[in-house]
């Protein structure tokens, strides 16, 4: 029995090496670059930045689902972002100084417009969309806009047994 347990354990732990990233699709390095990029699109102020609100979680999860079709674009685009960054300041985007990051992202937006527009759209979705998909942590963006969440709606008091309710 101990043997089978050990086999089972090995069989289950064994799959961890397949992906040592803490993300479902992205590698740790890709996620860092994407976070740096998303944080230029929605930076931190009194309210969280894109990555602080879970936008990378959102995009990573969707790349396992409906956005499977964008996997190649993300892998290529993130690589391009890091290349631009290396050319500008010698390090990957996540390691670049904050002032440099904006320049890198502006250059990316110009040269890889399609990729940048896609990331912008997905970042906005993750930040302003429903929290259930991994972004908009605790509905923080909705509260930022002054929306009550969950909204309060009382129960209507009516009596259908008497025809029209009261």
């Amino acid at each position: 029995m101990a043997g089978t347990a050990a086999t089972g354990a090995v069989c289950i732990t064994g799959c961890s090496w397949r992906n040592s990233s803490r993300w479902e699709f992205l590698s740790n390095a890709q996620a860092e670059t994407l976070a740096a990029l998303a944080d230029q699109i929605i930076p931190e102020d009194d309210f969280p930045s894109a990555s602080q609100a879970g936008v990378v979680v959102y995009i990573d999860r969707q790349l396992m689902g409906p956005y499977r079709r964008h996997r190649g674009a993300y892998q290529g685009g993130i690589e391009s972002a890091d290349q631009i960054s290396r050319k500008f300041c010698g390090v990957a985007l996540a390691q670049a100084r904050p002032t440099m990051r904006q320049e890198v992202v502006s250059a990316l937006a110009e040269r890889f417009r399609e990729f940048f527009e896609m990331v912008r759209e997905h970042t906005m979705e993750g930040y302003y969309g429903s929290p259930r998909h991994g972004g908009n942590r605790d509905a923080v963006s909705w509260r930022m806009l002054g929306l009550k969440e969950p909204p309060l709606r009382g129960r209507a008091h009516y009596d259908l047994s008497k025809g029209r309710g009261s």
Partner: peptide
């Protein structure tokens, strides 16, 4: 819904960055 406002901000609003986030806050309501 907030998601509908992203591209409905006043003309001239930055499309991303601090300016966009600020405009979302300013105009959504």
């Amino acid at each position: 819904l907030p998601i509908h406002m992203i591209d409905r901000l006043p003309p001239g609003t930055p499309r991303w960055g601090q300016g966009h986030k600020q405009a979302m806050r300013e105009w959504h309501r």
